[in-house]
Measured scan of single mutants.
Amino acid sequence: MAEAPPRRLGLGPPPGDAPRAELVALTAVQSEQGEAGGGGSPRRLGLLGSPLPPGAPLPGPGSGSGSACGQRSSAAHKRYRRLQNWVYNVLERPRGWAFVYHVFIFLLVFSCLVLSVLSTIQEHQELANECLLILEFVMIVVFGLEYIVRVWSAGCCCRYRGWQGRFRFARKPFCVIDFIVFVASVAVIAAGTQGNIFATSALRSMRFLQILRMVRMDRRGGTWKLLGSVVYAHSKELITAWYIGFLVLIFASFLVYLAEKDANSDFSSYADSLWWGTITLTTIGYGDKTPHTWLGRVLAAGFALLGISFFALPAGILGSGFALKVQEQHRQKHFEKRRMPAANLIQAAWRLYSTDMSRAYLTATWYYYDSILPSFRELALLFEHVQRARNGGLRPLEVRRAPVPDGAPSRYPPVATCHRPGSTSFCPGESSRMGIKDRIRMGSSQRRTGPSKQHLAPPTMPTSPSSEQVGEATSPTKVQKSWSFNDRTRFRASLRLKPRTSAEDAPSEEVA
């Protein structure tokens, strides 16, 4: 009796068929016929556990003709996506030579605008209408194809895939403007070719909807975003200037109206006075309405000098805001240009540092100066060695804690006790272990408590650290204090090793 083939788990290929790579489910599931010992083939499952149809090819690079078809379809799909992405970037994010197409579109729109203006002049109306009709045909074809291509290429973005995504893309403001202008152009052409009475009025009214094509030149909205950011950044200043200017306008108009309503027919109503105030304070000055009385002229002159300053403030605020924003954008561009080279330089330096163990090129690091100058660790070890030599091999803490019996001779020589300023008595072995921070803190506390006492003391002649007598400086308080830590004499004296002298005989010792 033939044995059933062993159940295979995992992703390994079956024996005897090495080139074939078959994806098997996580659990080997066989058909009921196979479990019962029949000759049925096992049921194939996909990666998600769903059964595959009987005629479906197995996924994998070596699955025969199905694999070749899959490779061809995958390559075609990649080319399709690449083309779609390229078209989308050309239309929505132009760079380099892609601006040539947008310059061509701008020339078409500008020519249409010029011809629309010439069509309103009686001398050039006939020729402009003929040229404009031909140009409209060209623009309908160009913009119609462009609109379709834009909607198709938007599928390269995830949020615009599918018919719902394309509809979302078509609802964008600039796409809506394109659609309105396209419909208006078709209506103008249809009305112009019919030759009816309505054609002339339709051409004159709907052609100027094509002015909206100038708005579509900035599809990404960079200028509007820049203007919005400047207004938002200086909103408080703008609101303040406009508010005060509006108050000056209504008060000036009302007072001039009261002064001129009886003697001047131009100011017969408050609305006429508001019109005069707006034209005057905005420095336009049509001259259609002028005050005639001396009181009205004085009020107009005073409020004009006051109001023009507030009406001119928004222009200066926006101008300075634009300058600052442009400078910030230039700085951001320079930062973006330098970020990648800086990151590459840091990575290269780290690779060199991690692979080169000698690091002989590091001549400006802490390790280099640590090898030249005595390190703080060596100074600490030197302090501890000196203290243990004086205390008979014991550390200062051990000397303080060691009990001394009554009447027993002390094995240590008597030492002079010292007192730290602002604290109780402490171990004499710690007097010379006072660090730089303690010395600086002690000097600052003395300056806070009594700076007036220092200038009363007789001035001391500054001497070099080499000429100081070591026996005289029994305490860190003898170090000359200065008002600034930048004094080199104080810094050098604080680094010197001060020996400890006994109370009975204080021989001067120098520590090399």
Rank of each mutant, 00 (worst) to 15 (best):
M1V: 02
M1R: 15
L9R: 05
P13R: 13
E22G: 10
A28D: 13
G38W: 07
S41F: 15
R43S: 15
L48P: 07
G49S: 15
G49V: 01
G64R: 04
R72S: 11
Q84H: 01
Q84K: 03
V87D: 01
Y88C: 06
Y88S: 13
V90L: 09
L91P: 09
E92G: 04
R93P: 09
P94L: 10
P94T: 00
P94A: 10
R95L: 10
G96V: 13
G96C: 09
Y101N: 03
Y101C: 01
H102D: 09
H102L: 01
V103L: 01
V103D: 09
I105R: 00
L107S: 03
L108R: 06
F110L: 01
S111R: 13
C112W: 13
S119C: 13
E123K: 06
M139K: 06
V141E: 10
V142D: 10
E146G: 04
E146Q: 00
E146V: 08
E146K: 11
Y147S: 10
I148N: 06
V149D: 13
R150G: 09
R150P: 05
R150W: 12
V151G: 14
W152C: 02
W152G: 06
W152S: 09
S153F: 14
S153T: 04
A154D: 00
A154T: 04
A154P: 15
G155R: 02
Y160C: 07
Y160H: 08
Y160N: 06
R161P: 04
G162R: 12
W163G: 00
W163S: 01
G165S: 01
G165D: 04
G165V: 06
R168P: 07
F169L: 04
P173H: 05
P173R: 04
V176D: 02
V176F: 08
D178N: 02
F179Y: 01
F179I: 07
V181E: 13
V183E: 06
S185W: 01
S185P: 00
V186E: 03
I189L: 09
I189V: 09
A190P: 05
G192C: 04
T193I: 04
F198C: 02
A199P: 02
T200M: 05
A202E: 15
L203R: 10
S205R: 12
M206K: 12
R207C: 11
R207H: 15
I211F: 03
L212R: 00
L212P: 00
R213P: 00
M214R: 02
R216P: 11
M217R: 00
M217K: 06
D218N: 00
D218H: 00
D218V: 10
R220L: 07
G221D: 02
G221R: 03
G222C: 02
G222V: 13
G222D: 06
T223N: 04
W224S: 06
W224R: 00
L226Q: 15
L226V: 00
L227R: 14
L227M: 11
S229T: 07
V230A: 13
V230L: 07
V230G: 05
V231A: 01
H234Y: 11
H234D: 01
H234R: 08
S235T: 00
K236N: 06
E237Q: 07
E237A: 09
E237D: 06
E237V: 11
L238V: 01
L238Q: 00
L238P: 15
T240N: 02
A241G: 02
A241P: 00
Y243S: 01
Y243D: 00
Y243C: 00
Y243F: 00
I244N: 09
I244V: 03
F246C: 03
F246I: 05
L247Q: 15
L247P: 01
V248G: 03
L249F: 03
A252V: 08
A252D: 07
S253A: 04
S253Y: 01
S253P: 01
F254V: 01
F254L: 15
F254I: 07
L255Q: 07
L255P: 07
V256F: 09
V256I: 10
V256G: 05
Y257D: 06
Y257C: 02
L258R: 01
A259G: 06
A259P: 14
E260A: 08
E260K: 03
K261E: 15
K261M: 11
N264S: 14
N264D: 09
N264T: 13
N264I: 12
S265C: 01
D266A: 05
D266H: 05
D266V: 15
F267C: 10
F267L: 07
F267I: 13
F267V: 07
S269A: 03
S269Y: 09
Y270S: 03
Y270C: 11
Y270N: 12
Y270H: 03
A271P: 00
D272V: 13
D272A: 06
D272G: 14
S273L: 11
S273W: 11
S273P: 04
L274V: 09
L274H: 12
W276L: 03
W276R: 14
W276G: 05
W276C: 02
G277R: 02
T278K: 09
T278S: 10
I279V: 06
I279S: 08
I279L: 04
I279F: 13
I279M: 13
I279N: 12
T280K: 13
L281W: 05
T282S: 01
T282I: 03
T282K: 09
T282A: 09
T283I: 14
T283P: 08
I284N: 12
I284F: 08
G285S: 11
G285C: 09
Y286H: 00
Y286C: 06
Y286F: 10
G287D: 08
G287A: 07
G287V: 02
D288H: 02
D288V: 12
K289N: 05
K289R: 03
K289E: 12
K289Q: 05
P291L: 05
P291S: 04
H292P: 09
T293K: 14
T293A: 10
T293S: 04
L295Q: 13
L295P: 07
G296S: 14
G296A: 15
G296R: 09
R297T: 05
V298G: 15
V298D: 01
L299P: 06
G302R: 03
G302D: 02
F303L: 07
F303Y: 01
A304P: 03
L305S: 15
L306P: 05
L306Q: 12
G307S: 08
G307A: 04
G307V: 10
I308L: 03
S309T: 14
S309F: 03
F310C: 05
F311S: 04
F311V: 07
F311C: 15
A312D: 07
A312V: 11
L313R: 14
P314H: 12
A315D: 06
A315V: 08
G316R: 04
G316S: 04
G316V: 11
I317N: 09
I317L: 13
G319V: 15
G319A: 15
G319D: 15
G319C: 14
S320F: 15
G321C: 10
G321V: 12
F322S: 00
A323D: 15
A323T: 15
A323P: 14
L324R: 15
L324P: 15
K325N: 01
V326A: 13
Q327L: 02
Q327H: 12
E328G: 11
E328A: 03
E328V: 14
H330Y: 05
R331L: 09
R331W: 01
Q332L: 06
K333N: 06
K333T: 02
K333M: 04
H334N: 05
H334L: 03
H334R: 10
H334Q: 10
H334P: 12
F335C: 14
E336G: 13
E336D: 01
E336V: 06
E336A: 02
K337N: 02
K337R: 06
K337T: 08
R338Q: 12
R338G: 07
R338L: 12
R338P: 07
R339W: 10
R339S: 02
P341Q: 15
P341R: 15
A342G: 08
A343P: 13
A343D: 15
N344Y: 10
L345P: 11
L345H: 14
